[in-house]
Simulated assay, not measured.
Amino acid sequence: MASFARQLLGVAVVTGAGGTGIGAAVAKGFVRSGCTKIAITDINSKTLTQTKEAILTINPSAKVLDKPGDIADENFVNTFHDEVFRKFSRLDYAVNCAGVLGSKTVKAVDMPTDDFDRLNDINYKGSWLSCRAQLRNMLQQEALPKQRKQRGSIVNIASQLGIVARPGAAAYCASKAAIINMTRANAIDYSDEGIRVNCVCPGVIETPMTTSSPEMAEALKPAINIAPMKRMGSPNEVADAVLFLCSSQASFIQGHALVVDGGYTIN
């Protein structure tokens, strides 16, 4: 993983940071890049603890706030971010990785409303609630020295399917498209405040979400074969893009949807 040392020395928060997926890779990437204060959350307390242990293996002196909870719960989101700000006195980087893919492909007519609500509560509403809480905190602080007037940086995780569509995924595609345009709108609203808001659109990434069942693996094969690189990406490859967007090296990048998909969307 590329090093962004001296660029990521503030306080970071990562949602959806449990396990071995993108969020965990981002959290560990922050610490490898010099960040010594980090807050992480995930709905799964066991995998969240695993991420915390991995962070402390990288840097035993890192200060880690870990709190399990449901990212779709407004009260939890607000309480968690308030605790982050009280503990660390600021918030410089925020990455929203919590998301679900759905257990199977399903067309709109066949999708129960409860499944639709669950998917959007996590993918879109959870990102929206998190962004709102993060922006509130960032507006209370001044820019760090040597950060090119950057008061804060938020990166949301969308998807290649927020840009293009595929069969049997209408609700998922819509939830990720919503994240992209939410990102753009927040970027417009808070540029004058010195806050950058961008998103990353991963392709098929090798995570527990994409390898959870034979049915899911079979459903993803066409997407892998369409992409010119013809392979799954790794969480670390997405994390590298996220860390770049957080850093001052991306100081003139605002409201961008960075595609990390092995070329899927160019076909």
Results as ranks from 00 to 15, higher is better:
5 A>H: 11
8 L>T: 00
10 G>V: 08
10 G>Q: 06
15 T>A: 06
17 A>W: 04
21 G>Q: 00
22 I>T: 02
25 A>H: 08
25 A>W: 06
27 A>I: 02
27 A>Q: 00
28 K>Y: 05
31 V>F: 06
32 R>L: 10
36 T>G: 11
37 K>P: 08
38 I>G: 00
39 A>H: 02
41 T>M: 00
41 T>H: 00
42 D>K: 01
42 D>L: 06
42 D>F: 04
43 I>L: 11
49 T>R: 12
50 Q>N: 12
51 T>L: 04
52 K>W: 08
52 K>H: 12
56 L>F: 01
58 I>E: 11
59 N>L: 01
61 S>M: 12
61 S>F: 09
65 L>V: 08
65 L>T: 05
65 L>R: 03
65 L>Y: 13
66 D>Q: 14
66 D>M: 13
66 D>Y: 15
68 P>L: 05
75 N>V: 14
75 N>D: 15
75 N>A: 14
78 N>E: 14
82 D>Y: 10
89 S>E: 13
91 L>M: 09
91 L>Y: 05
97 C>K: 02
99 G>S: 04
101 L>Q: 05
103 S>G: 14
104 K>R: 15
111 M>D: 12
111 M>P: 04
115 D>P: 00
116 F>S: 01
117 D>F: 11
118 R>I: 01
123 N>E: 05
123 N>L: 04
125 K>I: 08
127 S>N: 10
128 W>A: 13
128 W>P: 03
134 Q>N: 08
141 Q>L: 02
144 L>Y: 07
146 K>N: 15
146 K>D: 15
148 R>K: 15
152 G>W: 12
154 I>K: 03
155 V>L: 08
157 I>V: 15
160 Q>N: 11
163 I>Q: 02
163 I>E: 01
168 G>W: 02
170 A>S: 13
170 A>V: 08
171 A>V: 10
175 S>D: 02
183 T>V: 13
184 R>G: 08
185 A>T: 15
186 N>K: 08
187 A>E: 01
188 I>L: 14
190 Y>L: 09
190 Y>W: 15
191 S>N: 15
192 D>L: 14
192 D>E: 15
193 E>F: 15
196 R>Y: 03
199 C>Y: 04
201 C>T: 05
203 G>D: 00
204 V>Y: 03
211 T>C: 10
214 P>T: 13
219 A>C: 07
222 P>E: 10
226 I>K: 12
226 I>E: 10
227 A>N: 04
231 R>P: 01
232 M>I: 14
233 G>W: 04
234 S>Y: 10
236 N>H: 06
236 N>M: 06
236 N>C: 05
239 A>F: 05
241 A>R: 05
245 L>N: 03
246 C>K: 07
246 C>A: 14
247 S>L: 09
252 F>S: 09
252 F>T: 09
255 G>H: 10
257 A>E: 03
257 A>L: 05
257 A>Q: 00
258 L>H: 02
260 V>S: 00
261 D>P: 00
264 Y>P: 02
